[in-house]
Simulated assay, not measured.
Amino acid sequence: MNGSRTSLMDVPLRQAVELERIDAPNEEVEPLLERGILPGCRLRRVRNSPAGDPIISVEGTLLALRRESAVQIFVREV
């Protein structure tokens, strides 16, 4: 992984990472923040849906994301 250039979609399944930033318009960032996807939080891609969208664990809570959102979430290794 390459630090701030690594999107959540590039992270191998089950690898723990820390959220660095979200590069998306405000109207797309706000729902993520409301669900606990905050800078500094730890998360993992635990599996993919049949459509290929990631299902992530954020501080122990499972959330489904759209692939389009996941590529805008940048993480670093912990």
Rank of each mutant, 00 (worst) to 15 (best):
S4N: 14
M9G: 04
N48A: 10
N26P: 12
V75D: 04
L38D: 11
G52P: 15
L38E: 14
M1V: 11
Q15I: 15
R35T: 02
I73N: 04
D10H: 01
N48C: 12
R21A: 02
D53Q: 08
Q15A: 13
E68P: 02
S7A: 06
E59V: 05
E28W: 13
L38S: 07
R66W: 14
D53V: 00
V75C: 01
Q15S: 13
P25Q: 12
R35I: 07
R45L: 07
P25I: 11
R76K: 09
N2Y: 14
R45S: 07
M9Q: 08
L19R: 03
E28D: 10
R47E: 11
A70K: 03
S57G: 07
V46A: 02
L13N: 14
D53H: 08
P31W: 00
R67I: 11
E68I: 06
A70M: 03
S4H: 13
E77T: 14
L43N: 04
P31R: 00
V75I: 04
E30N: 12
L38P: 13
S57A: 11
G52F: 04
E34K: 10
P50Q: 11
G3R: 09
E30M: 12
L19C: 00
R76N: 03
R45G: 07
G3Y: 08
A16F: 01
V71A: 06
N26C: 10
L63W: 04
E18G: 00
G60A: 10
P12K: 12
G60S: 01
N48W: 07
E77N: 14
G52Q: 02
D10I: 01
P39E: 05
M1Q: 04
R66Q: 12
E68M: 12
Q72I: 09
V46D: 08
P31Y: 01
R21I: 03
V11W: 02
P12S: 02
S69H: 06
D53Y: 07
G60F: 08
V75S: 04
E30A: 13
L63T: 07
A16C: 05
I37E: 08
R14N: 09
V11M: 01
L19N: 05
A51H: 08
E27S: 05
N26K: 13
V29G: 02
E77M: 08
P50D: 07
V46P: 04
